[in-house]
C-alpha cells in the first residue's frame, strides 16, 4: 500500500516539476505595439520619392488623402504595380492598374548636374524635396547621388537646362539567375551520395 502511495507521490511530484518547467519555458505573450495611425501606415509603404506626381505635395499628404478616402490607391507612378499591391494589401482592397494620367512607372534614375554649365542660381536646391543638392549662390552645384530619390523636380526649374536624369551608376545589385546545368553523367554512374 505504502509502495503505491510512494509511486503516486513521485508521479505527482514529477508532474508538478515538469508543469513548472513548461510554464517557465513557454514564451510570454509579447505586448503588441500600439497601432500606428492609418495615414502613417500608408506613408510607410509609399516610395518616398516625394515627386508630387500623385497630385499631392509629397508622399505624406497623399497618404493622408488615401486614409481619408479622398484619393485612390493607384496614383503613385514611382511605386508602380508593386506599390499598389502593397497599398491594396494594407487596406484590404483589390489592386488595380496604375492610373497613367499621373505618369508611367519607370526605373529609378538619378539627377546629374553638368557642372561646367551650372551658373549657381540655387533654383534646383529650392526645388529638391530631400536636400540632395549641394551648392551656394553663384557657385557650382552638385547632386549628392546617395540622397537623390530621382523625383525630377529639379530638372524643370534650371534656367540653363543643365540637369539630366541618368541611370544609377555602379552599385546596382547583380541579379544572377542561373540554372544548375545537368552535366552529362557517364552511363550507369549516378552521382553517389556521400
Amino acid at each position: 500500500m505504502s509502495g503505491l502511495l510512494l509511486i503516486a507521490l513521485i508521479l505527482l511530484g514529477l508532474a508538478l516539476l515538469l508543469g513548472a518547467r513548461q510554464l517557465k519555458t513557454r514564451p510570454r505573450p509579447q505586448p503588441t505595439p500600439p497601432e500606428l495611425p492609418l495615414a502613417e501606415q500608408i506613408d510607410a509603404v509609399l516610395p518616398q520619392t516625394q515627386c508630387t506626381q500623385c497630385g499631392y505635395k509629397g508622399c505624406r499628404p497623399y497618404a493622408e488623402a488615401i486614409a481619408k478616402g479622398e484619393a485612390d490607391i493607384n496614383q503613385c507612378p514611382p511605386g508602380g504595380d508593386e506599390g499598389i499591391a502593397k497599398l491594396a494589401a494594407l487596406l484590404g482592397r483589390d489592386p488595380k492598374p496604375l492610373d497613367t494620367s499621373h505618369g508611367e512607372h519607370k526605373p529609378k534614375r538619378l539627377a546629374l548636374i553638368d557642372e561646367s554649365v551650372c551658373i549657381g542660381c540655387t533654383l534646383c536646391i529650392q526645388a529638391c524635396p530631400v536636400d540632395a543638392i549641394l551648392g551656394s549662390a553663384k557657385h557650382m552645384h552638385t547632386v549628392i547621388r546617395s540622397e537623390c530619390t530621382g523625383c525630377e523636380l529639379c530638372v524643370a526649374p534650371c534656367p540653363v537646362d543643365c540637369i539630366s536624369m541618368v541611370d544609377p551608376d555602379a552599385p546596382v545589385k547583380i541579379r544572377r539567375r542561373y540554372p544548375v546545368f545537368p552535366i552529362k553523367i557517364q552511363a550507369g554512374s549516378r552521382p553517389d551520395r556521400a
Partner: peptide, 21 residues
C-alpha cells in the same frame, strides 16, 4: 537578392522620408 533589394529600397525610402521631413 530580391529580399536584399527590397530591404535596401526600404532603407532608402526611410532615409528620404527623414530628409524630407
Amino acid at each position: 537578392q530580391e529580399i536584399v533589394q527590397a530591404t535596401e529600397a526600404q532603407q532608402a525610402a526611410d532615409k528620404a522620408r527623414q530628409r524630407h521631413e
